[in-house]
């Protein structure tokens, strides 16, 4: 099956038609955040403060990249385990974020929030950081530089490969895939 090409920011129409198991190629701007950055971002939302970037229609990529070697825009940059961000994700989706990118399963609360906001959880290839870095054409830190690898980066990506893991109907590709091959 041909991968679906997506250009960020995404509209509700873009994400609502995606289905678990589909392969997509993402292009445009995405923002990075993992544990510590999420904690700060959600605290800002709770205080009614403005986020360091406009979250409307944006995608958050759970990644803490390696430093950029000379002549490169970024080091290896594969996904980190998403479940650690579960407690923050509903607030981020409510703020306008249209999708998140990581690896591994999500809580029931996140699935509910994805359905409510017609948002999508994408899986990037865990352990393929060097390969994924090739689809990142620009990178800059836009918030929390003191967090080092956990700082919020603004990434420009070109045809970054991802898989729809949980779609806006709440269908989960991990569950579907495992059921097909389980012999227990």
């Amino acid at each position: 099956m041909e991968p679906i090409k997506l250009q960020t920011p995404l509209t509700v129409e873009d994400t609502a038609r995606l289905r678990a198991g589909q392969t997509c190629l993402l292009s445009g701007i995405i923002y990075t955040a993992r544990d510590s950055a999420h904690k700060r971002l959600v605290e800002m939302l709770e205080k009614g403060e403005k986020l360091p970037f406009d979250p409307q229609g944006q995608l958050i990529y759970y990644v803490g990249p390696c430093p950029a070697p000379p002549g490169r825009v970024i080091g290896s940059a594969g996904p980190t385990t998403s479940t650690r961000m579960d407690i923050y994700t509903p607030a981020m989706l409510a703020a306008g974020v249209r999708g998140v990118i990581g690896k591994g399963d999500r809580s029931q609360e996140v699935v509910q929030a994805l359905m409510q906001h017609k948002a999508v959880y994408f899986g990037a290839i865990g352990g393929a950081g060097a390969l994924i870095a090739k689809s990142i054409v620009q990178a800059e830190v836009v918030a929390f530089p003191d967090l080092g690898p956990e700082a919020v980066h603004r990434l420009q990506v070109k045809e970054m490969p991802v898989v729809v893991v949980i779609d806006s109907l709440g269908q989960n590709f991990y569950t579907l895939g495992r059921a097909e091959y389980s012999k227990r």
Binding site: G21, G64, I125, A130, G177
Partner: peptide, 30 residues
Amino acid sequence: ESPVGRQMLSSLMENARIARTEQMPICQDT
């Protein structure tokens, strides 16, 4: 047996090749 699975394994092999030849870490979690 899974076609998607084979595709993922081939991406990991490609990743290892890039890491080796371009002096990049295999994974960002070093």
